[in-house]
Design a protein around this nucleic acid. Structure first.
Lengths: 155, 155
DNA sequence: GATAATGTACTCGGATATGTTGTGTCCGAGTTGTTCTGG
DNA sequence: CCAGAACAACTCGGACACAACATATCCGAGTACATTATC
């Protein structure tokens, strides 16, 4: 179980875009320079955010990416799941019904307790991430940062 | 973010071994037949459990795997982390200190808030899994199961 | 009949191939601002 | 000086290689039991 390294990139990029003026756009190339990461690959990940409806994108000069919603309505969970897809990392294959074990259907009417346990843990994880919005992240960072971010990422 | 499919195998195998008489062993081949999974690959995963101290193993005839601790002292988390290693799936690379962003050391004294958020979520996940022991799993399964499991997995 | 030696079957354990997913890169489609030309 | 068209620069978007991990497999080292030969 490992999250892609690009997760950190898009998290920071989203927070950075949240510090721009509302509706302002910035390009993937500029963000890549800002964090020193591969530009094309970063763009690929940001596209996933667009497909998930977290970001909006416009092509051409003066184009780029921008947040699709107010910063208070974008949670860390939204961003993370936009990349990995919200699927549960544990997928129950019901092996208890295979091979010599092969419990009777009556015994398998109630769902696999292990699967339930794993799902509840995943839900706890999701709830923890859903509790933090991009606005919360902005609030806690040093006051001097947003102005500098705006300055560097504006054209 | 995806857990290996073998996670389900070792979870069920551990629960199955927990239904045997204390100290009794069963072989990887027998467990593989029991759940209809690749024998050699299952053995490889069980070896990881041994290295983690969750299982014990003895070679030779009448040998095999057995639980290394009482069932109440083995949690689902122990088993899951024995395979994947307990590392946090999100690893903060401190990209905020790279590229043009490059915050000053003073601003980076406090840890990255995003990393903290991700870590807290991971801890919530771990706590949820640590709250369920193998004994809890045994308690909730239908009463007829343990006898059958013992019968099938004994030689 | 008891005992020691031998052989055999069975176990784990690590070293070795293959498929899928994340990582990284490239080029094309489309749009906007600019520039040049003609009136 | 103004209007229109051509141009060029910049953007995203999807298609194409490479690497790392999970998956799957095999063979070797070691052990306990059964068998056999000997006393």
């Amino acid at each position: 179980m490992k999250l892609p390294e690009s997760t950190e990139w898009v998290l920071h990029c989203t927070v950075a875009m949240a510090q721009l003026d509302p509706g302002a756009t910035t390009s993937a190339a500029r963000l890549a320079r800002y964090y020193d990461v591969p530009p094309a690959y970063l763009a690929k990940q940001l596209q996933a955010l667009v497909r998930a409806g977290v970001l909006g994108a416009t092509t051409g000069p003066r184009g780029g990416f921008r947040l699709a919603r107010p910063i208070a309505e974008i949670t860390v969970l939204d961003i993370v799941e936009a990349l990995n897809g919200g699927a549960d990392p544990y997928v129950c294959q019901e092996i208890r019904q295979r091979g010599e074990s092969a419990a009777t259907p009556a015994e398998c009417r109630n769902p696999c307790f292990l699967a339930t346990t794993m799902s509840q843990a995943h839900e706890a994880w999701r709830a923890s991430l859903a509790a933090v919005s991009v606005a919360d992240v902005i609030d806690q960072l040093p006051p001097a940062i947003p102005a500098r971010t705006r300055r560097t990422l504006s054209r």
